[in-house]
């Protein structure tokens, strides 16, 4: 009995020491200007992951986005090199001349997710698709999406 009790006490002590050394930082309790600054300084994938934490953080990310921007959401389709039957859908954010990968999905293209990205990054809702053999009639691509450009990434 004695050794196990001892062990338990040691674990508790090490945990409490850890939290005493580094208290966590309450982001929602910071001044609003600082909250917006923090989010603006994150990379787009970090902003996306933060928006998935709660409705409030999602709203915070939207608030931090500039109104008049040149953001575009581009979608690239591909196949998993190991499992050829798996379709990979990659969502990119294009800011001026930079393209940043935000998120990768396996399976179908989701128009809801695309709309979420457009809404989050204040980008137009048209689908900018990048696919070498793009076919809008493909069953994994809903036909209700407006298709503006194709194969854009291939030229870069």
């Amino acid at each position: 009995m004695e050794p196990s009790r001892k062990k338990m006490r040691m674990t508790l002590r090490s945990d409490s020491k850890k939290s005493a050394v580094q208290p966590l930082l309450k982001l929602p309790k910071l001044p609003l200007l600082a909250q917006i600054n923090v989010i603006k300084m994150m990379t787009p994938p970090e902003q996306y992951l933060l928006s998935k934490c709660s409705k409030r953080t999602c709203q915070m990310v939207k608030t931090s986005m500039p109104k008049n921007n040149s953001h575009e959401i581009w979608v690239k389709f591909g196949r998993d090199p190991d499992f050829r039957i798996c379709v990979i859908v990659q969502y990119y954010l294009k800011i001026a001349e930079t393209i940043v990968l935000i998120h990768t999905d396996i399976g179908k293209f989701s128009s809801e997710k695309h709309k979420f990205f457009c809404d989050l990054f204040k980008a137009p809702t048209e689908v900018y698709a990048i696919w070498p053999k793009f076919d809008p009639r493909f069953d994994k691509f809903p036909t209700n999406c407006a298709i503006r450009r194709t194969n854009l990434l291939e030229y870069r």
Binding site: L24, L25, K26, L27, P28, L49, L50, K52, C53, S54, R56, T57
Partner: peptide, 11 residues
Amino acid sequence: PAQLRRVYLLP
């Protein structure tokens, strides 16, 4: 996201 919730104490 789960780690972010912990780091930033997000409700």
